[in-house]
């Protein structure tokens, strides 16, 4: 009886190792693309590759980041001034969007330099 549980834990361990390998393989290939780096209070909260479209709640839902067609922008914010929503779309190295009430900054890293078209 006990040994079946040990065996199943072992199977789960092998599964986990396989998943980790897959994760690293996928990660490695995405280093070439630009990423939207999200900082809250100066601490990095996450990196979102511009090549992957999606809608991402940030900072516990205070802001919403949208990535589409290789560009990132903030579509929703719970602050009164909505400055970040009006900062437009960013896609090139060094460009950023800031939401000061929520101490949130989204910046682009790892892509091509400003001036060149960074779309993939």
């Amino acid at each position: 009886m006990k040994s079946r549980y040990l065996r199943d834990l072992l199977i789960a361990g092998v599964l986990l190792a396989a998943a980790l390998l897959l994760f690293m393989a996928v990660r490695g290939r995405q280093v070439s693309g630009a990423e939207a780096v999200v900082m809250v209070d100066g601490e990095e909260q996450g990196r979102y590759p511009l090549a992957i479209a999606g809608t991402f709640p940030l900072n516990g839902g205070s802001n919403v980041l949208v990535i589409e067609n290789g560009e990132a922008w903030v579509s929703e914010a719970d602050c009164p001034d909505k400055v970040c929503m009006h900062m437009g779309k960013i896609s090139r190295n060094g460009e950023f969007i800031a939401c000061l009430p929520n101490r949130l900054i989204v910046s682009i890293e790892g892509g091509e330099d400003s001036g060149a078209d960074a779309r993939t």
Binding site: D8, L15, L16, A18, F23, A25, A53
Partner: peptide, 26 residues
């Protein structure tokens, strides 16, 4: 629902988290 291809990117991460969580729950 969102019409995106998040699946490809998230799958490995969700496999990892699903396995760990699954062992704890199991």
């Amino acid at each position: 629902l969102l019409g995106t291809d998040v699946l490809r990117y998230y799958l490995p991460l969700l496999l990892i988290s699903g396995t760990i969580a699954g062992v704890v729950v199991g």
